[in-house]
Amino acid sequence: MMWDWEFTAVVVPRLLDGLVITVLATLIGYLVALALGLAVAIVRRVRIIGPIVHAVMEFIRTTPLLVQLLFVFFLAPSGMTALTVGITVLGVHYAAYTAEVYRSGIEGVAKGQWEACRALSLPPLRVWGAVILPQAIRKVIPALGNYLIAMFKDTPLLYAITVQEMMFHASGLGGQYFRNFEAITLVGLLFVLVSVPSAILIRRLERRYAAV
């Protein structure tokens, strides 16, 4: 079976459109995950609310993203677009992961730092903002970077709720022209083209931070 170049010419522009959506969903979702995860990691240390938040995040972390997407998609008000649902769910789902990363970073800050803050009677805002978080986050930057790639790779799931990302076009056109081979292979290639260099770049950064 030969590669169909004519079909390739038809499908690639659409896939690139999809790639834009994919990257957009990844980046915005990532920002949500970074911010929400940090909030969760801090709130987790609060009494009563902390354990509840933790339990909810644990539930989100141990159940499939695909089912969460479908669940929220059907629950969401009709005004909300599929893409908005997708980005939100993606961000919240990964916040469950980033929260764990932040937590390990916060726990990694030496006990003496907390004690020093107490000895100086710093207000909580300064304790977190000026002492604990700057040290904690610096250490976990590489781990957070890995989740950017993980999220990118999970974006094809948005196809299940009709978001027009790469897989949506590939599956549509591939089925229509009976050229699934070309369509899906191209999606795979595009994924590797974006994610492998990003992974290598992140590992570089990781090494640089580790060296400091």
């Binding site: 790779k153 799931l157 699934n180 292979t185 795979g188 994924f191």
Partner: peptide, 12 residues
Amino acid sequence: FRGIAALVLMFW
């Protein structure tokens, strides 16, 4: 295989 999503691989 870390670079390709499982979904894409499975569809393929």
